[in-house]
Amino acid sequence: MALDDHRVVVTAAGRDFGRTLAIRLADLGAEVFLSARTLEAAQRTRDEIDQRGGRAHAFACDLTDPPSIAAFARDVEERAGRVDVLVNNGARYLDGADLLSASDTDVVDTIASGATGTVLATKAFLPLLLRSDKPDILTMISSAGTAGHQRSTAHDAFYSAKNAQGGFAEILSKRLRSQGVRVISLYPPDFVNTDPLSPEWLTTPRSAKDPLTSQSLVDCVVFAISRPRDCFIKAIHFEEP
């Protein structure tokens, strides 16, 4: 599926899955506007995309800082004028099954980046999405964001942030449908983040016995945003091993 006519924003794309997704979307032809908490991290991913012949622009955006989010959206508007896909990927992971194991600062940062940051990024980019004829908002949540989930060793604050993302996407999906905006949520369990620059990326066979990989998640993202506009995929859930 070619994405040559897509302008895609990916938050937290300086490393891990955000980097993986940004590189693969650019490989498919999308023009990617990627952010990271530091400009240097975003530029590293942009440079990797440039070296592969893709189109990418790097920005600093701290999802715990409202002015930083607003500035990111303004900068993208100046360069692009519109956005076709917003990928809410940014959310700090916090490990620890004991509530007392994390500092107050870590708790605030985790919830602010995942919950408040997702709401404010969506709010900031919504006017640019409404200028598109194919607007999609895709949020990388987690199986930790599903009711009753308790299989992760993540801290309670991470669970809180992910459940907040899920609730936000739920109401947003209903309220934006009449404007043609698709709101898509992915709820993956823990997965292996394979390197998109590895030659084995597209050739390594995968089976039911293997853990979920970032390659499979990228496939799901591309599938969802490439459906005809009458197809509103609300959420993608995964069976856990």
Rank of each mutant, 00 (worst) to 15 (best):
T204I: 13
L120E: 13
F191S: 12
E48M: 13
R46I: 15
R55A: 15
T146C: 10
A2R: 13
I141Y: 00
D136P: 00
G81K: 15
A41N: 04
K234P: 01
D133Y: 03
D84S: 08
A164W: 00
P67V: 00
D98F: 08
L126Q: 07
D16G: 14
I49A: 01
Y187T: 14
A22P: 11
D136N: 06
A22W: 11
L94E: 04
Q150R: 15
T116S: 08
E239W: 10
D5L: 15
G148Q: 15
T146Q: 09
T45N: 07
L129R: 03
Q51W: 08
T118P: 06
V222K: 01
L25E: 11
G167P: 13
R46Y: 14
L129H: 00
S101R: 08
L197G: 06
A70R: 12
E239S: 12
V8C: 08
P211R: 14
T146G: 07
C231T: 08
G114P: 05
V192H: 13
A157M: 07
K162E: 12
V108E: 12
T20G: 04
R37D: 03
A124E: 04
P188A: 00
S207R: 11
L120Q: 11
S103F: 02
V83H: 03
G167K: 08
K134I: 08
A12M: 05
H6F: 09
F191I: 12
A235G: 06
Q179A: 12
D104I: 15
I111G: 09
G117D: 02
G18N: 04
A147P: 03
S173T: 08
S207T: 09
F17L: 01
S160L: 05
S142W: 15
A121H: 06
R55V: 10
I171D: 14
V76P: 03
A102V: 05
P67D: 03
Q43N: 09
A22M: 09
D156Y: 14
A58H: 13
S198W: 15
L21Q: 07
R227E: 07
D84M: 11
H237S: 08
D84I: 12
R19F: 09
G14P: 06
H237W: 03
E78Q: 09
L94R: 00
G114W: 02
I141A: 09
R151Y: 05
V192F: 10
A41Q: 06
C231Y: 01
R37P: 12
A56C: 03
V10L: 05
A71V: 15
S35R: 01
D106Q: 02
R55F: 09
D27A: 00
R79F: 06
G53N: 01
F223W: 08
D84Y: 04
E170P: 01
A147N: 11
R229M: 05
L63M: 15
T110H: 06
V9S: 01
L28Q: 10
V76H: 12
D84C: 05
S113K: 05
I225G: 00
L172N: 00
Y187F: 12
S132P: 04
G29M: 02
D133S: 09
T122H: 00
S160I: 05
H149R: 14
P188E: 02
T139Y: 11
